[in-house]
Amino acid sequence: MKTIKTIHQASYHPIADLITYNPLPSPKLRQIDPFIFLNHHGHQTYPKDNNGLPFGPHPHRGMETVTFILEGDIMHKDSGGHESVINAGGIQWMTAGSGLIHAEVSSEKFKKEGGDLEILQLWLNLPAKLKMTKPRYIGLQKEEITSFELDEGKIHVQLIAGKWEGKEGSFETLWPIFMSTLHLQKGAKLQKNIPVDENVFFYIVKGSVKIQGENIPFRNLVEFNNDGEKLHVEASEDAVIILGHAKPFNEPMVAQGPFVMNTQQEIMQAYQDYQDGKFGSWN
């Protein structure tokens, strides 16, 4: 069985009027290579005629973002010409690669009508050989994402990337990674084999779960040891979990602002390239 190394509680860092919790990075945890950053926005209810999400145009290079829309919506636009509105249950996967500018705001409908919002964004590092890959973006609605049930219907799996139970994830990735969203009913028991040489990303979004007899509530990131291959989880109450795993890159990482590279010199070059307009134009 995989054993727990540390449990990391998300800290509260609001952004404007957006409720935001951040478990990664933290003073005690820089990364779970190659998982490097997570923001948990909400849950909160927006009134009518609100300003929505505050993430206007900004650049990225050297990493990827996976955005989980549990409630509300996101309107995405980037300098590569991609535009979409992804609704509750949908997923966005953006590869910043060599560099792009994007905005993530609420739709006009959401800003006018208001409603519940809960959105998480996970940053994934890119290996050095893929840092300067061509940017890309894919947004999928809930019904477009591979899903299935486990434990006699007590667990609903959204298979975002990788393979499980003979099924393929909905997103084709540049490097091998498993990513999923799990909805567990109280009493559900999850068992999954994960190779010893892969790092596990395990974040409890809602509810609480029991691992090795320890009850762990939501807004906690569980860091596992690289020991056993079997992950066993039991839902203490209805719960939502983000579960991912991948082999670590074991490369130097320098993260500064919106850029994630291997050296400080590459970070300085990223800022220079952005200022020189090499990340595309924004209309």
Rank of each mutant, 00 (worst) to 15 (best):
T3L: 07
T3I: 06
S11V: 14
Y12M: 12
P14S: 08
I19K: 15
I19L: 15
I19T: 15
L24G: 08
L29N: 05
L29P: 02
F37Y: 14
H40T: 05
Q44H: 12
Y46E: 15
L53Y: 11
F55Y: 15
P59D: 13
H60N: 11
G62F: 00
E64K: 03
V66G: 05
D73K: 05
D73V: 00
I74D: 05
M75L: 13
K77E: 15
S84C: 00
A88Q: 11
A96D: 08
S98P: 00
G99W: 02
G99H: 13
G99I: 03
H102F: 04
V105A: 06
S107E: 04
K109Q: 08
K109A: 12
K109G: 04
K111F: 03
K112C: 04
K112D: 14
E113L: 06
L124K: 10
R136F: 00
R136Y: 01
G139V: 02
G139T: 05
G139M: 06
E144P: 03
I145M: 06
F148Q: 03
L150V: 04
V157L: 02
L159Y: 07
I160Q: 02
A161D: 03
K163Q: 05
K167F: 02
S170Y: 08
S170G: 01
F171R: 11
I177G: 03
F178W: 02
F178Q: 05
T181Q: 10
L184N: 02
A188W: 07
Q191E: 10
I194G: 01
F202G: 02
S208Q: 15
V209H: 09
V209M: 06
L221D: 03
V222T: 09
V222Q: 05
N225S: 10
G228R: 13
L231I: 14
A235Q: 05
A239R: 05
L243T: 07
L243A: 12
F249A: 01
N250D: 08
N250H: 09
V254A: 09
A255R: 07
N262H: 06
T263F: 00
Q265N: 10
Q265V: 03
M268T: 11
D273Y: 13
G280R: 14
S281A: 09
N283H: 15
